[in-house]
Simulated assay, not measured.
Amino acid sequence: MLVLNLLLAIIWLVLQTSFTWADFVVGMLVGFGIIGMTEATLTWQRPFSDQQAKRGYVGRVMKVISFSGFVIWAIIKSNLDVAWLVLNPRAAYQPGIVAVPLDIQSDLGITLLANVITLTPGTVSLDISSDRRTLYIHAMNVQDPDALRAEIKGEFERRVMEIFP
């Protein structure tokens, strides 16, 4: 579907007889709208799971956009938390390593989760167990390891699993 969306954007550019980034973005949006309205009639096989296929192209794109917004917000929030710890000399912080059990099955999902955790300031993904069931994370401030695990599983892993189960 992404290839079809790109093709529709290129057709849009040719019809507009101008080749600017703004026209390309408008073409992508027009293509996205066309695909959204006609997706039920497009019947070729999709290389996704049944759950993802039911959601369709438009639903998957919306999930990716929502996930991107969540990651940006998490990065901003973590930046503020780390800045507070660094600038406040009396702040008591307790670094630690936490093992987080994983429900994600795919290599792409595990990689995305580990990278998003590393992108947020104050946390680094260290290692994954050999059976790919546990992710080890170093956090700058681990007051409550169970709360950190719950946050990673409830926020980060859940959202990654919506995209890559």
Rank of each mutant, 00 (worst) to 15 (best):
G122N: 02
I72W: 15
K153I: 12
G109C: 08
I34G: 08
V58P: 01
T20I: 06
A22I: 14
M161W: 11
N115L: 02
E157W: 08
E151R: 00
L2Y: 14
G33A: 15
D81V: 10
T123I: 11
I10W: 15
D131G: 10
V116L: 08
N79K: 12
F19Q: 05
L8Q: 12
Y57W: 12
V58G: 04
Q143Y: 00
F67M: 07
M1N: 08
A150D: 13
R46N: 06
H138Y: 10
Q143F: 00
N141E: 01
G96P: 07
Y57S: 13
P95T: 09
V3T: 15
S18F: 08
L112Y: 08
R149S: 03
V142K: 07
P95W: 13
D107S: 09
I65S: 08
D146S: 03
L80I: 06
W21E: 04
E157Y: 10
L2N: 14
V30T: 04
M161S: 13
S106D: 08
A114I: 03
S66W: 07
Y136M: 09
Q51Y: 08
S78K: 04
G109T: 02
W12N: 10
V25M: 14
Q105L: 07
L102I: 00
V14E: 06
F48T: 11
W12G: 10
I152C: 05
M161E: 02
L85G: 08
R55Q: 15
L4D: 05
L85A: 05
P89A: 10
L80A: 05
G56D: 01
W44R: 09
L15N: 06
L15H: 05
R159F: 06
G69T: 13
A114F: 04
Q94A: 01
K54S: 14
D23Q: 13
Q94F: 02
G56F: 03
M161P: 02
P47L: 13
I104G: 08
M140E: 01
Q143M: 02
S129C: 02
V3S: 15
R90I: 07
M37A: 14
L15S: 05
I76V: 15
Q52D: 12
T43V: 06
M161F: 05
I75P: 00
L8F: 13
L80Q: 07
V30N: 04
V86R: 10
V98W: 03
T20H: 13
I117C: 05
R60M: 11
I97L: 09
P47C: 07
E151D: 14
G33F: 15
A99L: 03
G109N: 05
G96I: 07
S129E: 00
L2H: 12
M28N: 11
V14T: 13
V86S: 09
K54Y: 10
G59H: 12
F24I: 03
S18V: 14
S125A: 13
D103P: 01
I76C: 13
V64L: 15
R60P: 00
V124D: 03
S49E: 14
